[in-house]
């Protein structure tokens, strides 16, 4: 695969494409197809959640009492802010404002870090109480009952924490991957490799990051606000 330098834009595009725009549109379609696979993969967990929530509403209700809405809401705002700054990172690349683009991308990265720190605090709180998935569950029913104001602790409470850790864990892995990708495009932006005529990698990483945000938009009410 060789690259062709187009005289008008100064950007290289792969030889099997006709033009830079052709390559941009194709790459973007590829990213959307990838996002489609992500939706279906997370979707498996959402379908499982829907079924077991239907079968054991009490388990999910009690389980959600152990999550802290303040943490969840903060993380939602953090991710929304990161989504905004990611979109701005693309915007500033589109108008060739390198410094602002780098600032926006660094802010996105910072939000990712904050998100993971809060996640860490939440996880350590749950692990401290013994609220682990399945076999690793070490919760003491009496102690836990006090914690939720005397509600009866369902026998299969570990199932809720299986969902909690599987869903947030898979999401957390995506956040980490996204942070790695953002670091990569930030460096390339800082080197001045992008401009209005070529910013495909930033666009692609941006789409991925927004998807991570989208998943969280649904996870937040499902895990923190189950009534």
């Amino acid at each position: 695969m060789s690259t062709v330098k187009s005289s008008s834009t100064g950007h290289h595009h792969a030889h099997h494409y006709e033009s830079a725009d052709h390559e941009y549109q194709s790459s973007k379609q590829g990213v959307w197809l990838f996002l489609c696979t992500e939706i279906l993969m997370f979707g498996g967990l959402f379908v499982g959640y829907a079924i077991f929530h239907h079968l054991f509403p009490e388990t999910f209700k009690v389980g959600s009492k152990f999550t802290d809405v303040r943490y969840g809401a903060t993380n939602t705002v953090v991710l929304l802010a990161s989504s905004l700054s990611m979109a701005l990172g693309i915007y500033y690349n589109q108008i060739r404002d390198k410094n602002k683009a780098v600032m926006a991308l660094l802010f996105t990265l910072l939000c990712g870090v904050i998100f993971m720190v809060i996640k860490y605090l939440e996880y350590s709180h749950k692990i401290h109480l013994g609220l682990m998935p399945g076999d690793w569950y070490r919760g003491n029913a009496e102690e836990l009952a006090q914690y939720v104001g005397g509600l009866e602790i369902p026998k299969n409470l570990p199932l809720y924490f299986s969902f909690y850790f599987m869903m947030t864990g898979l999401h957390g892995i995506h956040v980490l991957v996204g942070m790695g990708l953002i670091t990569w495009v930030t460096i390339r932006t800082a080197r001045g490799e992008f401009g209005p005529e070529y910013y495909t990698p930033v666009e692609g990483v941006g789409l991925f990051w927004h998807l991570v945000d989208l998943v969280w938009i649904y996870l937040f009410p499902l895990l923190y606000l189950v009534s």
């Binding site: 997370f42 967990l45 682990m132 998935p133 399945g134 299969n156 199932l159 599987m166």
Partner: peptide
């Protein structure tokens, strides 16, 4: 294929953690 992906991940998690799904 993504649904197979999550299925075998759950299967692995079931064997490691006994998640109970």
């Amino acid at each position: 294929t993504p649904v197979l992906g999550i299925t075998v991940l759950l299967l692995a998690a079931e064997n490691i953690f006994g998640i109970g799904f």
